[in-house]
Simulated scan of single mutants.
Amino acid sequence: MLFKRSKEIKPKEISYEELINLMKVDHCLVDSRGRSSYAKFHIDGAINIPDEEFTELSHLLPDSTDTPLVFYCKNVYCVLSPNSAQKAVSLGYKNVYLYKGGVEEWIKKKNIELPQMNEPGKLTKEQFIEIYKRKDDEYLIIDVNDSYDYKIKHLKGAINYPYGYIITNYNKLPKNKKLIFYCASGTRSEDIYYFLKEKNIFKDGEIFYLGASVIFNGDKAKIV
């Protein structure tokens, strides 16, 4: 399926308050993150259509193109929901909305306390920076953003294995180094980590992911 860019219709960004009001009427709320992130936590009533699987799962969308569609992902840095929302516009849906605050804002606004999970492969901002500054040959830092985004900006020394490539070619990942995955928002990298854990081809301590967003301002990277 080819998705054409529409210059006439763009998804409308909405706030938390606007989302609350929209949820009072007939609508379809779509979580564009991967399956593992959705399973950990999602907004009540949301269906899961990972952006990477949009074509295969678009049949889950409402039959009526007039039904309001609301897409969300992790946070304002995540590109998954904007991508999916634009694809929905290309399919002819007329009322497409984008809740850019995502689950992070929702959790904060609702004062939700998530249960603490043991995540041995999750690196904090400080842990990642410490490893990155050491330039340790023991580790290989992998950018799982799309190739286009990687070419625009990426961390120096990081190589690019896009999310979609890893899903279908995970057996080709290097086995001679410890792998650290990162992305723009932390969503894709987390999903890749748990995807590989399910495949059981790496042991604990062999793969990690940065549980934070990596954004760029000019040539400078910022981890938030």
Results as ranks from 00 to 15, higher is better:
5 R>T: 08
13 E>G: 06
17 E>Q: 14
19 L>C: 07
19 L>V: 02
24 K>G: 12
24 K>C: 09
37 S>L: 07
37 S>N: 14
38 Y>I: 07
39 A>I: 12
43 I>H: 03
46 A>R: 03
49 I>P: 04
49 I>M: 10
51 D>L: 08
58 S>Q: 14
66 D>C: 02
71 F>K: 04
73 C>H: 06
73 C>N: 06
75 N>T: 08
77 Y>K: 09
92 G>Y: 11
97 Y>P: 07
98 L>Y: 13
99 Y>Q: 07
101 G>T: 08
101 G>F: 07
105 E>R: 08
108 K>L: 09
114 L>F: 06
115 P>L: 04
115 P>M: 05
118 N>L: 13
123 L>P: 01
127 Q>K: 14
131 I>G: 03
138 E>D: 11
139 Y>L: 07
143 D>K: 01
146 D>A: 13
146 D>V: 08
158 A>Y: 00
167 I>R: 13
170 Y>K: 00
171 N>P: 00
173 L>C: 09
175 K>D: 02
178 K>S: 04
179 L>R: 05
182 Y>R: 01
185 S>Y: 02
185 S>H: 03
202 F>P: 08
202 F>D: 05
205 G>Q: 02
210 L>Q: 04
212 A>Y: 02
213 S>D: 02
219 D>T: 13
220 K>C: 02
223 I>D: 00
224 V>C: 02
